[in-house]
Design a protein around this nucleic acid. Structure first.
Lengths: 337, 337
DNA sequence: CTGAAAGCGCTTACAG
DNA sequence: CTGAAAGCGCTTACAG
């Protein structure tokens, strides 16, 4: 009962082995550079033949067989935002920058990057079904999700989260400090009444915006300056909407939890005739390219994304649960504050 | 010589089969809903047991064994741009929007999305090594790359390309028409002298910016209005740099090949005291969220990205080489022109 | 309706 | 240094 079910695509190590009259193990060893297992001349022959036949290793088979898949998953949970009427998606550009940087760094180390976005459960299930070498999780808020991911992958790297410290590797910025830097900048400029714009400040105290708020809170308290909360989703439209509330509050300085919020806010304020930073000073957070695109350019907090991406990639190969890397934020002064 | 090499992660169909005293084929059939192969009651038992044991199907094994991997690769070639001194990457946000939309649509159909960015060869090799159901390729300029991809995957969907029509499925917008719409808008506004800003206009005639240029060219010629070429990379910094050239040319209208270029250009012009659109009118292209972020908001061309993403996903399951879908562009009038 | 077997393409102990 | 075999976890004809 020979059932031949070749996919018909490309050649295999068996084809090479047959062509050369050696066994597949030898071909595998030669192609993987196990030079202690194959003589140099045979290895050279095998490699030449492989090139000649246009051989491309099937990584799916390799990962089933071996211990490494060279696959990294990136989960971006809680990022789903429906399309607007303009047929544009109002997505925080932070995600795009993260994806590009991580993909670039990961590929240099021979990993492929898969992306999972949307609600937490939608992201977690498909990611848990692949044999990834590591899962990088952003925006996970549920301990159970973490447990499910760990079940198959072992190596879960939690990004920008203040939980999961025991079971996972954690990479994040010192968010409180970053928000304090921005707040102190406003205070130094002479602002007497501040607002903080962000999402889920009281509802999700573990999430990044709430943590940034607490940093701003401490700095404002230390300076004896009042700080109101303006609750808004983290996207451009949210920032625009916040403009009205900010005006009602009669503040002269606004700390936002994201550049994209600051961009929307500034646009909203400008259309109402407010001068930035003279009437109201605004700080962003993240230091994305958006920060240089808006007018006036954003004074913002650089969260050290490149450093974090490098830390993530280092942890992919060497990290242990419990490892943690906290990056120092840096104030970037431009024109908006 | 029993070599037991379990990964030790999670349970397998064999564990379930043993626990229930059936064979793995039956478990597989039950879990895959082949109800003609398993009695309803046994299937229910199997499913309950699977849940109980926390079984998660290993998709790597499934794709090696079966014919579908439920994996889709997205190649974004030619997108590499090094980090700037600000530690921000000047990436066209179009890519981020594409990734999010495509991931979202693909996941709804049960596919996972992997990303490959950078130079053409760097993208193509790793993508060709996986058993993907389909490869979506953006920015491929080399017929040989296409051939390599086809070798393993069979289904290559070329996005926004004017070649590969025979060997692949093609999805794109009518780029010439889109650029013509933008150009005609400027002419209607009364512009007497135009410039086109884009990358590789003469060097890469097959690429999108050059095709958009030709559309603008035709429209300008038809209106008897001169159109100069300003060569710049497709990113914010390129747009900013273009401002100087544009001023020297003394034009009163600029067609750009991308929103991000228009955003940079407008910022560059504003800092030089130019009023938009009164002194110089500017059009973008793509209708990204950036288009609403800059001041003045961009008049731009919507390239119908959602429609294209849906077409891509439809083609993943049903497309044949030679299939082509050309989407109609739409002028979106805001303030910059 | 159920089971035993072969196979996907690779890797890794182990024996020569 | 080289080869034969077993295994990764699943799916799919085929036989009962």
């Amino acid at each position: 009962m020979k059932v031949k079910r070749s996919s018909g695509k490309g050649s295999t190590i068996r084809d090479i082995a047959q062509a050369l009259g050696v066994c597949t193990a030898t071909v595998s060893n030669a192609l993987n550079g196990r030079m202690d297992k194959v003589s140099a001349s045979l290895a050279a022959d095998i490699r030449r033949k492989a090139d000649e036949m246009g051989y491309v290793k099937d990584l799916t088979a390799a990962s089933l067989s071996g211990f490494k898949s060279h696959l990294v998953d990136l989960i971006i949970a809680g990022s789903f935002i429906p399309a607007t009427k303009d047929d544009t998606w109002d997505i925080n550009p932070f995600y795009g920058e993260l994806i590009f940087r991580l993909e670039h760094e990961a590929r240099e180390r021979g990993h492929s990057l898969s992306i999972y976005t949307g609600h937490e459960e939608q992201c977690v299930s498909p990611a848990a079904a692949r044999r990834s070498d590591a899962i990088v999780a952003l925006g996970i808020t549920n301990e159970q999700s973490l447990a499910r991911l760990r079940r198959r992958t072992g190596k879960v790297i939690v990004l920008d989260s203040y939980f999961g410290t025991r079971e996972a590797v954690v990479v994040r910025t010192d968010e409180e400090k970053g928000a304090a830097l921005a707040t102190e900048r406003l205070v130094q400029r002479g602002c007497k009444k501040l607002a903080f714009v962000g999402h889920g400040i009281t509802e999700f105290p573990q999430n990044i915006p709430a943590i940034r708020y607490r940093g701003a809170r401490k700095a404002a308290d230390a300076a004896g300056v009042p700080l109101a909360i303006v609750e808004e989703w983290t996207h451009l439209a949210g920032g625009k909407r916040a403009a009205e509330t900010v005006l009602e509050l009669k503040v002269d300085g606004v700390v936002t939890s994201a550049d994209i919020l600051a961009a929307g806010l500034i646009e909203g304020l400008k259309t109402r005739g407010v001068r930035i930073p003279d009437d109201i000073a605004v700080t962003g957070y993240d230091n994305l390219s958006v920060a240089r695109m808006v007018t006036p350019a954003l004074t913002t907090v650089d969260q050290g994304l490149d450093e974090k991406v490098r830390a993530i990639c280092a942890f992919i190969t060497e990290g242990q649960p419990g490892d943690i890397r906290v990056v120092d934020p840096r104030l970037v002064v431009r024109e908006s504050a």
